[in-house]
Amino acid sequence: MDTLNFGVLDPIKLPIVKKLYKAHYPAGKPKSDERILTLSKNHAVAAIVRFRTIEQYRLMTGMLVIPEHRGLGLGHQLMQYLQSNELQSDDFCFALAHLEDFYHQHGFEVIAEEALPGPLKQLFSRYIHGGKSLVAMCYIDPS
């Protein structure tokens, strides 16, 4: 039986996470000032998500499920953990367009670029003008 563990990354393990991103999601660049949460399966990191603080806002970014663990529902399990333990109303994410429904299933709602807070709007605009197909989303706490 598989053992799943969720938790905040121990900063000493940041080099391991950087190596995983470099191998599987080169655009993702984990930094020591981010809040990084992991889902480990049988003591090996299987999924990662980062929270970047921009002024008083949080942007969920860089969600990665290691390729050999994809298709097992681990992304959904990580999101369920986040909903119960981490996400707050007005947390944001810039979802790849094809993942909009995935994030919607976990409490995120699409918002117009104009509705983003100033510093997030600037970042989103920069990404969009750089050619990325993203959807701005905001977490709405159901409680």
Rank of each mutant, 00 (worst) to 15 (best):
D33G: 03
I66N: 03
P26I: 06
I66F: 09
D141Q: 13
F92P: 04
L59C: 05
L20W: 13
D91W: 00
I140C: 02
N5L: 15
C138S: 01
I16V: 15
S125L: 08
P119R: 08
K132P: 00
P67N: 15
L96Q: 12
E100H: 05
V65N: 13
I12G: 10
I111C: 05
L78W: 09
E109I: 06
P11K: 06
V135G: 04
H104F: 13
Q77F: 06
E109F: 03
A44E: 09
E109V: 14
S125P: 03
G75D: 07
A47F: 03
S84R: 12
I54W: 03
G107A: 04
F102D: 07
K19T: 15
Y103S: 06
I140S: 04
L37S: 08
G118L: 12
M60L: 11
Q122Y: 05
Y139I: 06
Y127G: 02
Y57L: 01
Q88W: 09
I66Y: 04
S89N: 14
D10W: 01
M79Q: 09
L64D: 10
F102Q: 14
G131L: 12
F102Y: 15
R35G: 01
E114F: 00
D2A: 14
L14G: 10
A136Y: 03
I128A: 12
G62F: 00
Q88I: 05
M137N: 06
V8W: 15
C93D: 01
L123I: 07
E34W: 08
K13W: 08
F51C: 02
K29G: 02
Y103T: 03
R58G: 05
S133Q: 15
P117Q: 14
P11H: 05
K13C: 09
M60S: 05
F92V: 00
C138D: 02
V17A: 01
V49L: 07
K121M: 08
E109M: 04
I111F: 00
H129E: 14
E86R: 09
A95F: 11
L116H: 03
D2E: 14
M137K: 08
F124Y: 13
F124I: 12
L116Q: 03
R52T: 07
M137V: 01
L4H: 05
R58W: 05
R58V: 12
Y25S: 15
L116T: 02
R50D: 02
K121Y: 10
A95V: 13
G130N: 12
C138N: 08
Q80V: 11
I36Q: 10
I54N: 02
Y57I: 02
C93F: 02
V45T: 15
S143C: 08
S32T: 08
H129L: 13
K41L: 15
H106R: 07
A44S: 08
G71S: 07
L37Q: 07
F102S: 03
A23K: 11
Q105N: 10
G71Q: 09
P30M: 03
G75M: 07
A136D: 09
T53D: 02
I66E: 07
T61K: 14
A46K: 13
S40N: 10
I66A: 05
K121A: 07
L87I: 11
S84P: 00
N5F: 11
S125K: 13
Q56S: 13
I111V: 14
Y81K: 11
A115V: 03
G75H: 01
F102L: 08
G28C: 04
K22G: 06
I111Q: 06
L37N: 06
V135C: 04
F6C: 02
